[in-house]
Simulated assay, not measured.
Amino acid sequence: MKRIIVFGGIALALIAVLIWFGKKNSASPIEYETEKPFKATIVKKSVATGKVVPLEEVEIKPQITGIIDRIIVEEGAIVKAGDLLATVRVVPNEQSLQSARGRINSVQIQLNNAQTQYERNKKLFDKGVISSQEFEASQLSYNQAKNDLKNAQNDYQIIKRGSVGSAGANTNIRATTSGMVVEIPVKKGYQVIQSNNFNAGTTIATIADMTKMIFEGQVDESEVGKLKKGTNIEVALGAIEDKKFPAVLNFIAPKGKDEGGAVQFKIKADVSLDEEHFIRAGYSANAEIVLNKKDSVLSIKEALLQFDRKTEEPYVEVKTGDQEFEKREVKLGISDGVNVEILEGITEDDEVKIWNKVSKDEEKKEN
């Protein structure tokens, strides 16, 4: 009984194997489809990433060191040259203040002495005791001493109040150009430093002409050699969908910078704005730059190309009969990543094998 069961199992296994081989051999062979070359316009583009910034941007800095007392305008305000932006309250340096007071006292002593000599010499000159030259020398010293005292007093007022008189010329921060206030990096109570030969000074406000915008971006070293000044490009902004702004390339950096192992070159382009959209400074942007363009050239899809494993030369398989193909080497032109120009190797009448198309059975398995 056991032998019958064993032999029966073996027989069933053999039958199953024979059925599987029969189905496999009866499966239809792979049938390849073909496509014909076609005429197409191929545009090779380079995309530069960057942002849009104002062409003219001015930083307003104080002429004195002090503390922000008032901020008159807000970010986004339109101002004209000369408009008041903020006021600064002077906090005098105690050492400088004491030094200025000491200079006033010193000059006052000199003035008192010069005045005494002048009055004495005047009496002597009126009596004819001294010459006019000696009298004029004492008069000059007296006038110089008066002028020195006035200058010392002005210096003291500048150190103490920031200006001479009540006009507040230095404490009032005014716009030096017309435009929009795009940034106010300080607040009331902030301490600010004046601009001088050793310090750039504290920026109180930044004013820009928002009607003139430029694109600033970077391109890779492999493509910078193909760019030319005056090239028309299109700028797409991340904040504005389905809209591209025309621009003209006007600057290509003569020196690149190493960023993450790749050398990048800065480019700039004048952007043409419209009245419909308000472009804010700092919008992220992509610029499409046409490197090469060919109209109505013989083309195929890049997916139809194959490459020889030994020579790495491109080739396609051309139909010669029913599911029969021959290998043809081709010479390629420009490519846009989807279609590629064919210079030599095939004609418009040839049928090219679609060698990498997934069959319906394979699609079902993947699903």
Rank of each mutant, 00 (worst) to 15 (best):
Val330His: 07
Asp258Thr: 10
Leu84Phe: 05
Lys24Gly: 11
Lys123Thr: 11
Leu124Cys: 05
Arg120His: 10
Thr176Pro: 00
Leu111His: 11
Ala236Val: 11
Leu291Thr: 02
Lys357Gln: 14
Asn121Cys: 00
Phe251Lys: 08
Val90Gly: 08
Gln218Met: 09
Glu259Met: 13
Asn250Asp: 15
Asn93Trp: 10
Val235Glu: 03
Lys160Val: 03
Val107Pro: 07
Asp209Cys: 02
Lys268Arg: 15
Pro54Ile: 00
Glu312Cys: 06
Glu119Ile: 02
Glu31Ser: 12
Ala236Arg: 08
Asp155Ile: 04
Lys327Phe: 15
Arg280Glu: 12
Asn197Gln: 14
Glu312Asp: 14
Gly165Lys: 03
Gly238Arg: 11
Lys293Asn: 08
Gln117Trp: 11
Pro54Trp: 04
Arg3His: 07
Glu216Gln: 14
Glu363Ser: 12
Val330Gly: 09
Thr320Val: 13
Ile207Asn: 01
Val340Phe: 11
Tyr156Asn: 09
Tyr142Ala: 01
Asn250Ser: 12
Leu249Ala: 07
Thr34Asn: 05
Gly260Ile: 01
Thr203Tyr: 00
Ala27Met: 08
Gln191Asp: 00
Thr206Met: 03
Val318Lys: 07
Val53Gly: 07
Gly22Gln: 13
Ser222Lys: 06
Gly225Met: 02
Gln306His: 09
Leu149Lys: 06
Asp336Arg: 09
Glu56Trp: 07
Ile204Val: 10
Phe307Gln: 03
Phe7Tyr: 15
Met1Tyr: 06
Pro62His: 02
Glu363Gln: 15
Glu35Cys: 07
Ala208Pro: 03
Glu57Thr: 06
Asp83Gly: 05
Lys244Ile: 13
Ile104Lys: 09
Ile4Thr: 13
Gly261Gln: 02
Val358Trp: 10
Gln117Thr: 13
Gly217Leu: 01
Val248Asp: 09
Ala40Cys: 07
Asp295Gln: 15
Ile204Met: 05
Gln153Pro: 06
Gln218Tyr: 15
Glu241His: 05
Ala114Asp: 01
Leu305Thr: 04
Tyr190Ser: 15
Asp220Thr: 12
Ile71Ala: 02
Glu344Met: 03
Gln157His: 08
Val53Asp: 10
Phe125Thr: 00
Phe325Gln: 01
Thr116Cys: 07
Glu324Trp: 08
Asn199Phe: 12
Ile15Thr: 10
